[in-house]
């Protein structure tokens, strides 16, 4: 069962990452990269690294992507 979840999460990470880099609009790509981070959180928990999972959830998925979005807003104002 755990193996199936692991395999599914691996495939999900790859698929979401591929979809994210092929997005034409940057905000969509940032939101999808948050999805990659969420799937990575599941992977880290399954590999028994809860510290890394918490860090990924907070920094990679949370504030990192939001800082990307804010920077994108600033870039958009400059154009």
């Amino acid at each position: 069962m755990i193996g199936l979840i692991l395999l599914g999460t691996f495939i999900a990470v790859i698929v979401i990452a591929f979809v994210a880099i092929t997005q034409p609009k940057l905000p969509d790509a940032i939101i999808l990269s948050m999805g990659v981070g969420l799937a990575a959180v599941v992977l880290f928990v399954l590999f028994q690294a809860p510290d890394v999972a918490l860090t990924e959830a907070v920094i990679g998925t949370g504030i990192g992507s939001l800082i990307y979005l804010m920077a994108l807003k600033h870039l958009g104002e400059q154009k």
């Binding site: 809860p50 510290d51 999972a53 918490l54 860090t55 907070v58 920094i59 949370g62 504030i63």
Partner: peptide, 9 residues
């Protein structure tokens, strides 16, 4: 689980 970095963020 956790620590300074995570708590700060």
């Amino acid at each position: 689980v956790g620590g300074g970095f995570q708590g700060g963020v």
